[in-house]
């Protein structure tokens, strides 16, 4: 039955080559922990992606309750914590996941660095990786403000002051970040939009590039 449905679609749309491109390839022995335990370092990229996926999912559920305005933001987070079924857990996933992404991504970067996998022909993928790194840091910076508690408010206040102290362009960066001259209503809506629309879009594009390049170039050979 399933096979029939698949064949029906495949006849019309020729989807088989699509997924074969993605999935039909060999995994070399030197990256397979089942062959050699020490190859677990090659899992870090995949695990980073797994955590990114849970971040996207938990973030989508948080967005069902979160309210990005300065009067209600804190109360909406409190509501998620105290009233929403499993809200505490979903918020916990998103909170701890944010740190875990950073840790796994850093480990992945170290693996790529120490195995020299950034060397020709993979230079561009390294550059894409560094860009991903900064996008993820930006996720952290903007997400930190959203609960609108004291910690959030003052971290952002100081962060923007530091940005503002940069010579020449500092004040412009600060205005761009805050939407005004202090952390306030415009800052919160801005950080929210950046956190849930701009950055995910950038991240997904970069990750697509990252994965396409890995498939096109294959993973680097054994040392």
């Amino acid at each position: 039955m399933l096979k029939k449905a698949y064949d029906w679609i495949d006849e019309r749309l020729n989807v088989t080559p699509l997924w074969r491109d993605v999935a039909d390839h060999e995994v070399p022995a030197h990256v397979n922990p089942a062959v050699k335990m020490s190859a677990f370092v090659y899992c870090f990229g995949g695990l980073t992606f797994l955590v990114i996926t849970t971040q996207i999912l938990s973030g989508m559920f948080l967005a069902m309750y979160y309210t990005p305005d300065i009067n209600n933001a804190w109360y909406s987070v409190k509501y998620i914590d105290d009233q929403v079924l499993l809200g505490q857990v979903v918020r916990g996933m998103h909170f701890w996941g944010a740190s875990l992404v950073i840790v796994m991504m850093f480990l992945h970067m170290l693996r790529v660095f120490f195995t020299g996998a950034y060397k020709a022909p993979r230079e561009l993928n390294w550059v894409v990786g560094v860009l991903i790194f900064f996008v993820v840091l930006a996720f952290g910076f903007t997400g930190y403000l959203l609960p609108w508690d004291q910690k959030a408010y003052w971290a952002t206040a100081v962060g923007s002051q530091i940005a503002g102290s940069i010579p020449w362009i500092g004040p412009y960066i600060q205005t761009l970040l805050l939407g005004s001259h202090t952390v306030g209503a415009l800052t919160l809506t801005r950080f929210f939009a950046i956190h849930v629309f701009f950055l995910p879009a950038a991240l997904l594009v970069l990750l697509a590039l990252h994965f396409i390049m890995i498939r096109a170039q294959h993973i680097a050979g054994p040392l």
Partner: peptide, 26 residues
């Protein structure tokens, strides 16, 4: 996650300048 619930600090108060700010650990 289950055994380390996240807490929510006091609501942001722009007038309370005695709060000692700190960024997230990373």
């Amino acid at each position: 996650v289950w055994f380390n619930p996240v807490d929510l600090g006091p609501r942001a108060n722009p007038d309370d300048t005695s709060f000692i700010p700190v960024p997230d650990w990373y």
